Simulated scan of single mutants.
Amino acid sequence: MKQWLPDKCNPWLWLVGAGLFICQPATAVDLGIPALKVTTLPDGQQEYTVTIQILAIMTALTLLPAIVMMMTSFTRIIVVLAILRQALGLQQTPSNQIMVGLALFLTFFIMTPVLQEANKAGLQPYLNEQLTSADALHKASEPFHAFMLAQTRESDLDLFIRIADEKSFNTPQDVPFSILVPAFVTSELKTAFQIGFLLFIPFLMIDLVVASVLMAMGMMMLSPLIVSLPFKIMLFVMVDGWAMIMGTLAASFGASI
């Protein structure tokens, strides 16, 4: 008679054992971390657990690139740098990585006072448990609201208020982000193209002079861009162009920083 040997793995026994382990009462292991808990505060507001707050923060991080581009000085800087490279006639120099990195660090330099104010008003009180998450978010957003409002033209703001079919607000601080952000981006693009136009003029003059000289010399087959490029680079270096551009861009936000 063949004896039943349990030393070899019987798949059915393993499935039954795994089912019994899974079906154990939840009280067997108490982690002590509530997954979802809403606490009603004395003033009527609701506070969520740290687990839900962390989940909300991680979800909000997906919007971080859009926030950096649309709610800071990044848009104006990157557009001006792109127009400058086109005016110089350099298609890939500086590279896109260098331009984006330069724009990010200059954005951080310009936005430092705003970030410090947001940290002081919202983040630090929240970490010290002096404010709820909703109040901290509201306090931290106020410096960004003031920064964008200072850089937004009234005509652009009135345009989006009219498109949204909203009544006039009592104070500019009452304008919601849903209206302020597109108005701010529109104003930033207009300002960036104005600065880019002023940058383009001297390089355009060099192209016209070189093209006229080549035509007078009968050198029709030689591209004026090839000849004018060294002169444009020399002019840009002689006037210390990079320092001038960076200083002008930073100073253009001087009223808000």
Rank of each mutant, 00 (worst) to 15 (best):
L131V: 09
L131P: 07
T132L: 05
A136I: 05
L137G: 07
H138C: 00
H138M: 06
K139T: 02
A140P: 01
A140G: 05
S141M: 14
S141E: 12
S141W: 11
E142N: 08
P143Q: 09
F144H: 00
H145E: 04
H145A: 01
A146C: 02
A146E: 14
F147Y: 10
L149Y: 13
L149R: 15
Q151L: 04
Q151E: 13
R153Y: 02
S155R: 10
L157V: 05
D158I: 07
D158L: 15
I163W: 13
E166Q: 12
E166M: 12
F169K: 08
N170R: 13
T171Y: 07
V175L: 11
P176H: 10
F177H: 04
S178T: 14
P182R: 07
V185N: 07
T186A: 14
S187V: 07
E188D: 10
L189D: 08
L189E: 05
L189M: 15
T191S: 13
A192W: 06
F193H: 12
Q194P: 00
Q194V: 05
I195F: 09
G196P: 00
L199H: 02
F200K: 03
I201T: 05
I201P: 07
P202Y: 12
L204Y: 14
M205N: 10
V209Q: 09
V210Y: 01
A211K: 05
A211G: 08
A211Y: 06
S212P: 00
V213D: 04
L214I: 06
M217I: 11
M219N: 10
M220V: 15
M221Q: 15
M221T: 15
M221S: 15
P224E: 11
S228E: 03
S228T: 10
S228F: 06
L229N: 02
L229V: 04
L229W: 05
P230D: 11
F231D: 05
F231K: 12
F231W: 11
